[in-house]
Design a protein around this nucleic acid. Structure first.
Lengths: 222, 222
DNA sequence: GTCTATAACTAGATAGAC
DNA sequence: GTCTATCTAGTTATAGAC
């Protein structure tokens, strides 16, 4: 930590670009965000993105990787801890380990920003092919570990059924977070009191886990 | 049906543009699709979109409106029929009325294309603001009617809880359909047999209803 | 109603001065 | 490492011939 100027660990411009891009991607998506928008928001010059990341596509990958990797590490750490203290953790505890890091940074104890949550939700929806491939890779370990834990926690649930239920679960989570984080700007059905309708984030997680756990435990139809 | 050429009801070029745009939007989204892509796919000239729809934005609205309006009409018709024959339809029947039109055109009895289903899923994810506003408007009646029916079918469920569960439900449905329609091109977790993993569309609906109905019936946490 | 040419603008990427 | 000027190619939209 001595060298204060020369070759400082990752230039501040680089970080500024990532931050600006992240914010814009979360709000409008990667397609609707131009390199010009990013450099302007970061207070950098137009050439900066290509200098630091070689192309817009590589910047996109880096923006998502920077957030998704630690997030998934925290998910796995949470499951490790759970399995270290209990033989068979409950389904609700497992789901909480999966979801909580989306909402709170467990290394710092700090609440995630709405922007962060929107970025994560969006990472599932972006049509960028390279991004999808990267995401799937990052997700493999998560799915493997959590699937195994859930199968132990829910007797009678079979792998094929779980595959589709996990798909439903992530769709529900990300659409729910999208709605929760944008609550103010979205219309709500008539007859509901807006002030009373939106729980705090803990309430949201609780509601989600209740819904998802019940879905996971449902008796298979056929 | 006599006039065969002059001023025939909605020119074929117009329809060709809508069809081409729909197909491209379903595959890559509206942002990644240019007017050039659309006119080329439709076998029309570059000016055609602006002549028939005034702008790309209005074409986008028309593409989604053309499919969403009849879809929602079929949903309401299905619920009408259900409520005409039973005092309190079961939750599963209500959910089926909500979901089936996404998958089968009940006026013709024909299976929807994967493309159609992808377009519907995408309509929830597109960041286009005008499109979102239009969608919310189209959805109001659906939500009002189906919420009321579900509240009757699930004793003890309160409106605020239902609001979030409906959000989860649509997220799960659209993400599930996205995955189901793109099954071949997406990676699956190791240890699963691809051939055995993907149900036919009836199996998919059944799985979805099982999951969603259990979530709807879950006892509220607080 | 169809088509082409083109206007007016924006995109990502790069070369080269500092 | 930063900045600007510029290139090439793409974008939507429109004017006017047919």
């Amino acid at each position: 930590m001595n060298r204060s100027d020369a070759g400082s660990p990752s230039s501040t411009t680089r970080e500024a670009l990532l931050d600006a891009a992240e914010s814009l991607f979360a709000e409008r998506g990667v397609e609707s965000t131009s390199v010009r928008d990013i450099t302007k928001a970061a207070g950098a010059n137009l050439g900066a993105v290509n200098y630091h990341f070689r192309s817009k596509d590589l910047l996109i990958l880096e923006v998502f990787a920077r957030r998704l990797r630690p997030l998934n590490q925290q998910r796995l750490a949470g499951l490790d801890e759970l399995e270290a203290t209990q033989i068979v953790p409950s389904l609700e505890e497992i789901l909480r380990a999966l979801i909580r890091p989306t909402v709170e940074d467990e290394t710092s104890g700090k609440r995630r920003t709405d922007e962060f949550m929107r970025l994560i939700s969006r990472s599932f929806q972006e049509s960028n092919e390279e991004l999808k491939t990267f995401m799937s890779g990052e997700f493999d370990e998560i799915i493997k570990r959590f699937d195994a834990a859930i199968l132990r926690a829910v007797p009678g649930l079979v792998k094929e059924e779980l595959f589709w239920r996990m798909t439903f679960l992530f769709g529900a989570l990300h659409h729910g977070l999208e709605r929760w984080t944008r609550f103010e700007s979205m219309p709500i059905p008539p007859g509901l009191d807006p002030a009373h309708l939106r729980p705090d984030i803990e309430g949201f997680i609780q509601r989600f886990i209740t819904f998802a756990a019940a879905g996971m435990r449902a008796a298979a139809a056929l």
